[in-house]
Amino acid sequence: MSEQAENRIDRRFAKLRAEGRKALVTYIVAGDGGIENTVPLMHQLVASGSDLIELGVPFSDPMAEGPVIQKGHERALAHKASLRRCLEMVADFRRDDGDTPVILMGYANPIERMGGEAFAEAAQQAGVDGALTVDLPAEEAGPLSGLLAERNLRNIFLLTPTTSEERIRAITELASGFIYYVSLKGVTGAGNLDLDSVHENLGRIRQHTDLPLCVGFGIKDGASARAVSADGDGAVVGSVLVSAVGEAGDAAQARDRVAELVAEIRGELDR
């Protein structure tokens, strides 16, 4: 990792480490439940105890997602959500929240369409802190990583149970912000979480990097969040929140349900 000025992600993890707390990273799909309801939902996530927000950028072909988040993408696209709109949402969010890190999580093609440089520029302007592009592995990520780094934005990489030792070394060198460890072989929301494997792999990764390690995929509640973050620095929760938004009758109900879920997980993480 090159020497860069601190950004919100670094500050947030430094603060959590100082307090001896685990990070709660929450994922929602931008525009799911209505374009105008996303920013209030982001503020609700923070109010209920989220440390860092991953804003899902809707894509027509979300290959790595399980059925729950796929449906979230489809609903968001039906509301005409787009990468451009996501950036507007973050700018809007920043008017009332200057501290909570926001990461855009999505797929390569909307960024390709906008152009890497235009995207990096717009992301910085909007107050985005980093990007996680699921289908942009280390081999293909170079150009975008450079454009983000020039603007002090972080490029978040995934490591998985299938990542070789050699790749862990290469990717941790390229990574910044934090490492997102995918807890299982599968899509988001899958049910085959294996805690022993998480324990072992976080240990392997830890030998190569001091970056914070957050664990995601298959985290359903406070208990599983607490279990996976025991050896790491935090947990990522997505499908349960997207499911709650999908099932809610209206925006207020969605916020209430999400608030409840996030508060429960926060409580367990801080226990």
């Binding site: 290959m63 699921v134 289908d135 592995p137 081999e139 995934l158 998985t160 149970p161 299938t162 599968g186």
Partner: peptide, 22 residues
Amino acid sequence: NQGHFGPYGGRFVSETLIDALD
């Protein structure tokens, strides 16, 4: 050897599949 035909091709998949592709 990285699968590129000029600017096209490559390997744009999530990290989980890289090992299998290798």
